[in-house]
Write a protein that binds this DNA or RNA. Structure first.
Length: 442
RNA sequence: GGUCCCUUCGUCUAUCGGUUAGGACACCAGAUUUUCAUUCUGGGAAGAGGGGUUCGACUCCCCUAGGGACUGCCA
């Protein structure tokens, strides 16, 4: 239904055009979804959709020209006749031919007709593709495609040619499922004596299993990546590496990609989407992302999940995010890793933690709390040192009470290392949670 | 059936006639470690098959196999 064309302007900018010959307006919402997805990706700033049906008059003008040139003809073939011809053509291993191609159109007598392009039967058509290289088609293998339907509306293959010509499109870059159409479209350009644009047919992206990426629209899927916890810049980087490479470069900026990119370097074979690698790339970007931005994203995720966000907890969220972000592959995971700071006292402890809280450990945690309370600089380095010193003073390893302390602080939800967890929670909340465990409310 | 496209580690890719075929993700092993994760070190892993061309082919040509697209009054 849609075809996204990326055409390079002389100014070096891209014009993104959504084609739609469908007369139903319901498609508008789908177009919206596409642009929303592109906007999220950050690549559709000055794009504008063009609806083909609004240009139907211009398309019909072009057909009138072709008719006058003798490069198109009226075809009165009925549906039954067409079907019979299809069966016969397939059996004979040839292309469908219309009986009206060389007949005099005046025999019309009011019957319905379509207008077909009159393609040459001799010679070959060369599509010098920027990605696939020179591809030759024997003209006799190309059937006469319909230009205008019985109701007078233009078809896709006519509309793209006319619109692209009128808009001065120089490069047509699209999925390689259109490679066959390129030959037919080239013929139309030539018949109208228009300049044929450069074509570049890039391979489609397949799913992890090698099959095509589901029926959903690509852009709609792009929107879903946001909800799955991926950063747009990470998506851009990962997507750029699918079907294209620049030496050993894996992580690079938009500027570098723009500088390095050459359509000639695009790989010919379809690539599969690999979630594991996407996660890795996303992790790298999360790691380097601005903390305030990540905190805002994580806050939204929690809110979306219905997690209670108390005013007192928000600063803790901001403190926790930078401390755990290196371990997160997605912002969803980042939310999981920060959940512990949002829990409200007294925490409901998990069974594992409960089991660890024997009298000995309880006593030790009490002494630890007393040790930590006066720590001056409530930050990872000094807290780390304090915990170590405490373990040494107790004559045991951190392992003897570490797991229990974590459980008491997080209630069993994922939490970072002890010093980071304490830092994120803050002095008051940390000590409070420990004391809650020491003297559980009845 | 016909036309066209594609084929390097499991995956994404580098190589553009001469390399021990490189990197990344994943995987395995080890180290670190208070959980998970992170981090560090090491390891296994590829030119679909067969013919050519050439002093020499992953690179060029042909064939076969496999995968895909098109074959609509869909786009």
């Amino acid at each position: 239904m849609f075809n996204l064309l990326f055409a390079r302007h002389t100014g070096g900018r891209f014009l993104i055009r959504v084609e739609d010959t469908d007369r139903e307006r319901s498609t508008a919402s789908a177009v919206q979804a596409i642009f929303k997805g592109l906007d999220w990706l950050g690549i559709a700033a000055d794009a504008e959709p063009v609806f083909q049906h609004t240009r139907a008059n211009r398309h019909r003008e072009a057909v009138a020209d072709l008719l006058a040139l003798g490069r198109a003809y009226r075809d009165f073939t009925t549906a039954d006749e067409l079907e019979a011809e299809r069966v016969e053509a397939r059996a004979e291993g040839r292309v469908v031919r219309s009986a009206w191609r060389d007949r005099d159109a005046d025999q019309a007598d009011g019957r319905l007709f379509v207008v077909r392009f009159k393609g040459p039967h001799e010679g070959e058509t060369l599509v010098d593709d920027l990605v696939k290289g020179p591809v030759r088609f024997q003209n006799k293998e190309l059937d006469d495609l319909v230009l205008l339907r019985t109701d007078g509306t233009p078809t896709y293959n006519l509309a793209v040619v006319v619109d692209d010509h009128d808009m001065g499109v120089t490069h047509v870059i699209r999925g390689d499922d259109h490679l066959n159409n390129a030959a037919r479209q080239s013929l139309i350009y030539q018949a109208l004596d228009w300049t044929v644009p450069r074509f570049a047919h890039i391979p489609l992206i397949h799913g992890p299993d090698g099959a095509k990426l589901s029926k959903r629209h690509g852009a709609q899927a792009v929107g879903e990546f946001a909800g799955m916890g991926y950063l747009p810049e990470a998506m851009r980087n990962y997507l750029a590496r699918l079907g294209w490479g620049h030496g050993d470069s894996e992580i690079f900026t938009d500027e570098q990609a723009a500088e390095w990119f050459d359509i000639a370097d695009v790989v010919k074979a379809p690539a599969r989407l690999d979630w594991a690698k996407l996660n890795h790339v996303n992790q790298q970007y999360i790691r380097n992302a601005d903390d305030a931005r990540l905190t805002a994203i994580v806050t939204e995720v929690h809110r979306g999940r219905g997690v209670a966000l108390h005013d007192a907890a928000l600063p803790r969220l901001a403190a926790a995010t930078p401390l755990v972000k290196e371990a997160a592959h997605t912002t969803l995971e980042l939310a999981d890793l920060t959940l512990f700071v949002l829990l409200t006292r007294p925490l409901t402890l998990d069974d594992k933690t409960l089991k660890r809280l024997d009298p000995e450990t309880l006593g030790r945690l009490g002494r630890l709390a007393a040790t930590l309370a006066p720590v001056k600089d409530w930050a990872p380095p000094s807290l780390e040192a304090a915990i170590r010193a405490f373990a040494e003073a107790e004559g045991v390893g951190v392992g003897r009470f570490g797991a229990a302390l974590r459980g008491v602080l997080s209630g069993g939800t994922p939490a970072p290392d002890l010093a980071s967890a304490l830092t994120a929670l803050g002095r008051e909340e940390s000590l409070g949670r420990i004391h809650d465990a020491l003297s559980p409310a009845a």
